[in-house]
């Protein structure tokens, strides 16, 4: 799922304080699962902002609402007039939602409430970890199901590099060395012989490096 982290309150306040009527809009799917940007968090954030406004005697009006997903047009119908009534929308969705609002409501100012961080998994309650970079050309088949592109600091495709110590990456003891995990897995699967096959130079054209991507399913396209 897409993981995000709420921006610090001061940063959000400095964004919206010049406005008169702000709508905080939650998105109730991925960022709700990580307890950062769901409808409930939107409600809490708007309450905090209202209190900040009263502390600084600014007449700003802060309301909050939420939709199921901010990456689908139809979900916005229920909040259309609320958005139009506001002179600024603070969206606590991931970056996708914020831009969707910008596209659909050209004259409404929109601000991001979250920093979208990564595509990740819930290791345990409250702990999310990056697992995939959407490079568009998956190598997991060759690396025993552990991705060096997303989980190695230097994207080494023939690792591990010289800095791997006791299973941790050279940059930080908390970060696992992806290649240590790959070696462990190859051992477990009894496929250590595959370790010595050279990984060819990667085709990055399908990655973001190849420019913004678009995907079309012919048969269901209108």
């Amino acid at each position: 799922m897409i993981v995000g982290k709420q921006k610090p309150l001061d940063e959000i306040w400095s964004m919206i304080k010049s406005h008169k009527n702000v709508l905080v809009l939650g998105c109730n799917t991925c960022v709700a699962v990580c307890h950062e940007g769901g409808n409930k968090e939107a409600e809490i954030l708007s309450s905090l902002l209202r209190m900040r406004a009263s502390q600084e005697e600014s007449g700003i009006a802060v309301t909050n609402s939420g939709v199921e997903r901010q990456c689908e047009h139809e979900f916005f119908d229920s909040v259309k007039d609320a958005i139009e009534a506001a002179d600024a929308v603070l969206s606590t969705a991931c970056g996708i939602g914020v831009q969707f609002i910008a596209e659909k409501f050209p004259t409404t100012v929109v601000y991001p409430g979250l920093n979208t961080t990564f595509l990740g998994a819930v290791e345990k309650i409250g702990v999310m970890k990056e697992k995939c970079q959407a490079c568009g050309n998956c190598v997991l088949g060759e690396t025993a199901g552990i991705c060096p592109v997303a989980r190695c600091a230097k994207r080494v495709l023939n690792g591990p590099c010289g800095g791997s110590t006791k299973g941790s990456c050279e940059i930080n003891k908390e970060v696992d060395c992806a290649w240590q995990l790959i070696v462990n897995r190859l051992n477990a699967l009894g496929q250590m012989d595959r370790y010595e096959t050279l990984a060819p130079i990667k085709d990055w054209s399908t990655d973001r490096a190849g420019g913004p991507r678009k995907q079309i399913r012919e048969e269901i396209q209108e």
């Binding site: 109730n28 699962v33 819930v122 345990k124 309650i125």
Partner: peptide, 10 residues
């Protein structure tokens, strides 16, 4: 419910 499993865990 979106089955985010938070309740399941606590």
């Amino acid at each position: 419910c979106m089955s985010c499993l938070a309740c399941f865990r606590v």
